[in-house]
């Protein structure tokens, strides 16, 4: 293919490699140092907090190799200009040549799980309850159950009126 196409493919490869690097950094969360805090000493007590962490990411991209409508392939400078414009919201209705785009996103969340206390009596683990999250989940579950029940009853009525009677 053309030099411009090769440049676009090379750019895609670089994006893929960068995404792999980001994922490798993401996996570094899977370590005890990230889950447990540094110990805090207060008098004869030492306290360590333990948290759960969830991270995730995803990305996608595509490359289309087109041909110019009125003669020949895009020049390298045209392809470079298009590649440089990716992700900037530019709507380029070009005549062809290699075009592509990509996007990605990620999220991270953490929540305390337990407090480990070390004192002269020994080591104690106290769980941490996230009441807000529990109440929100309970309300969501009740809402889903209620909506399902209403829909089933409505569907049942419709069925008995226009259905198998």
């Amino acid at each position: 293919m053309t030099e411009g196409h090769d440049h676009a493919v090379e750019t895609m490869d670089k994006a893929h490699e960068r995404a792999a690097e980001v994922l490798a950094e993401l996996v570094s969360v899977a370590s005890a140092a990230k889950v447990y805090s540094e110990p805090v000493v207060a008098g004869d007590r030492t306290i360590i907090t333990a948290a759960e962490i969830h991270t995730g990411m995803g990305f996608g991209y595509g490359l289309a190799t087109g041909t110019r409508g009125r003669g020949g392939q895009a020049t390298e400078s045209e392809v470079k200009a298009r590649v440089a414009s990716w992700g900037r919201g530019r709507r380029d209705r070009g005549e062809g040549g290699p075009q592509g785009g990509g996007g990605g996103g990620g999220q991270a969340a953490g929540r305390p799980v337990a407090v480990v206390t070390i004192d002269p009596d020994g080591v104690h683990v106290q769980p941490v309850l996230d009441r807000t999250k529990i109440v929100l989940t309970a309300l969501t579950a009740l809402g889903a159950i209620g909506l399902t029940l209403i829909r089933l009853r409505r569907a049942g009525r419709r069925y008995s009126v226009g259905g198998a009677e």
């Binding site: 993401l26 969360v29 759960e52 962490i53 990305f59 799980v113 337990a114 020994g122």
Partner: peptide
Amino acid sequence: GGGSVWSGPAAVIVEREGRTERIPIANLNG
């Protein structure tokens, strides 16, 4: 197209006076 990682505490291993004890950490919230 990506990945996801969940990490949480499993236990603490306590060594005291020659004895080793594994204290599990339960994720009550979860």
